[in-house]
Design a protein around this nucleic acid. Structure first.
Lengths: 350, 350
DNA sequence: GAGTCGAGTCGAATCGATTCGAGCGCGTAG
DNA sequence: CTACGCGCTCGAATCGATTCGACTCGACTC
């Protein structure tokens, strides 16, 4: 492709003894072409090694590239290692692939400036994952370019996007724990702000929350009427931080009987922390997570969690982006989550 | 972008009262343009909301798109959940991002046919990950289009690609185990063929091996002179299969004193299996892995493993692909792996 | 004062397709 | 026999830039 010696449609047309327009028609199938002519064109193409119209030229003419960008905000510095992100990305990739749309992957380090690709990359629409701030410069750049976008884990303030019903999921988990007789419940929160560290926080005065999922889940806590006996914030959604934060909660004098973690990785870490402290799960302490991951290494335990359909979320997001690329509008969708009771929650100890 | 009402360079030129060529020069900076003229052009652009040249048109003219495709073979049905793949992908994304190159992500399900994007997607070069077969139809399609490609985990038979020194890594692990006095060593292998199931295999007659990393690591076993007392094959590189396969090895009458697993996820599963069987690691059985992942959930243990630089591998692959896109050639690179001794290997029991 | 040089600007060709309107035969209806 | 319609093909415009060669004009040299 390019200034190389690859044959063009003009070459094929010349070889077949027809005009370029006819050759084009023969390939695209749009328009009346005699069968004999088409065969001649295809034969000439095969002979010359012409593998089809140059996609760039086609895009230019059509005014569409067929490419959807996925911008991964690296707020967590680990977009690729977080199973939540990769699960969603998988769904996006499947859906776009099936539609014959390209997926331009863009990392946004959030260190320097807006990635060049956001400014200059070829795209008909964009999917924003992991950037919570509505005023993010990446979004400004896209708006300036006139590129429509949808956001994954969209907040209520978004116009278009796909999110999950975080609040309802949390409420379901709280009710589950309450039904088991728990009254001293601690919250193990996802990060509240950029660059915060793992540590205890006051659940009654959290301050502004920079990340949409975190905010949504705390909203669920409030909605459920739960007043946590304590709360800890993990600096990122990884097992290690979950364990560290859970230790802080479990070593307090007024040890909670249940930990409600905002992600399954954090919950997994909490289970490990409990085990290390000689606490039995769930007899001494119950642990609930969020997301619905399978953590095989937790066996024989299985997390109680609120399951979100990651791949489905990705597919819906991709569909929304495709609609935007087509000039259609796309609503704010909120997917349900369902409670899955595992072995890590049980009756509150007497 | 597209047939919308976005301004074009011609509009800007008209508004600034200059020719299109001058306007182009003013933007690209290639060529002499009076400062006053440039300012006028930029002002006109700002006023019209022109955000820079249309990348598609630019690509057409230049004959290059600045896009590298990454084709993820889904042989493991889990390209996105395998940390080896995502780690490499992360490296690729970083390197390409820094070079201002786009990354077109293509999933190859391997079910139906060659993905449309491989046939028609915009790309200057491609990176193939997770497709081991040199005769894969995806590769044929790329060759037909004249798109150069490199392969991740390239085998010795590849012309260009980036791989790691699997064999040396295995040899190092075997020597480490031998140095600890182990003589009854079992191998926990990555899948040998498509659709194989988890189960015991005869280490002396493995048959043809379809996957390059698996083949390379068995080559290391042979090179080390090790004759495994037993071997098991996991159907994929996940904790669950590692555990299942390890059970088969550990429940044999002639229980091995050490298990050499071909991946860390398998090794992690093996540790879990040992613990479940009441065996102490490493007092009763040693376990070694491969890849150098951090498995926080294995704490307080840390795997003995052969560490490969995943991100570095990705970066190098991206660099090779960029070179190919520039028309340069790219050699076959083999990255070293280094032994990391953890807590899961120890002296052989008496 | 004529000639040279160079900075600055412009026109036109080009990249590789798509697509619209026009043209050309040929068969059939009037 | 003329006119019309239809099926097929073609020429040319277009998408939005880049880039080369030519041209203009003022400054400088001899």
């Amino acid at each position: 492709m390019g200034q190389s010696d690859r044959p063009t449609l003009a070459d094929v047309a010349a070889a077949a003894g027809v005009s370029v327009s006819t050759a084009s028609l023969a390939f695209s199938g749009a328009g009346p072409v005699a069968a004999s002519t088409r065969d001649r064109v295809l034969a000439a193409a095969a002979e010359l090694g012409y593998t089809g119209p140059n996609p760039i030229a086609r895009s230019l003419r059509r005014g569409r590239s067929g490419v959807i960008a996925v911008v991964l905000g690296a707020e967590l510095a680990s977009a690729f290692s977080d199973p939540i992100h990769t699960g969603t990305l998988d769904g996006v990739a499947r859906e776009l692939g099936e539609r014959g749309l390209g997926l331009l992957l863009v990392r946004s380090d959030h260190f320097g400036d807006v990635p060049t690709l956001v400014r200059e990359g070829v795209m008909d629409a964009a999917i924003i994952a992991g950037l919570s701030d509505l005023a993010d410069p990446v979004l400004d750049a896209l708006r300036a370019r006139g590129v429509p976008f949808v956001r994954v884990d969209a907040g209520p303030q978004d116009v278009a996007g796909v999110g999950i019903d975080d609040a309802a999921g949390i409420v379901g988990l709280v009710e589950h724990l309450r039904g088991l007789g728990h009254s001293r419940i601690a919250v193990l929160s996802l990060p509240l702000r950029h660059r915060d560290a793992t540590g205890l926080v006051d659940p009654r005065s959290l301050g502004p929350i920079a990340f949409t999922p975190t905010a949504n889940r705390w909203a669920g806590v409030r909605e459920s009427g739960l007043v946590p006996v304590a709360a800890a914030e993990a600096s990122s959604s990884v097992v290690e931080e979950g364990r560290a934060a859970a230790r802080l909660l479990l070593e307090r004098d007024d040890r909670p009987t249940a930990i409600l973690a905002f992600s399954d990785l954090l919950a997994g870490g909490a289970v490990l922390a409990a085990r290390e402290l000689g606490l039995r799960v769930p007899q001494d302490v119950s642990v609930a997570g969020f997301d619905g991951l399978e953590l095989p290494w937790l066996a024989p335990d299985r997390l109680t969690t609120a399951v979100q359909g990651l791949v489905e979320k990705g597919r819906l997001t991709a569909r929304a982006a495709a609609a935007l690329a087509d000039g259609e509008s796309s609503p704010l969708v909120r997917l349900p989550v369902v409670l899955r009771v595992g072995t890590t929650t049980g009756p509150a100890p007497a």
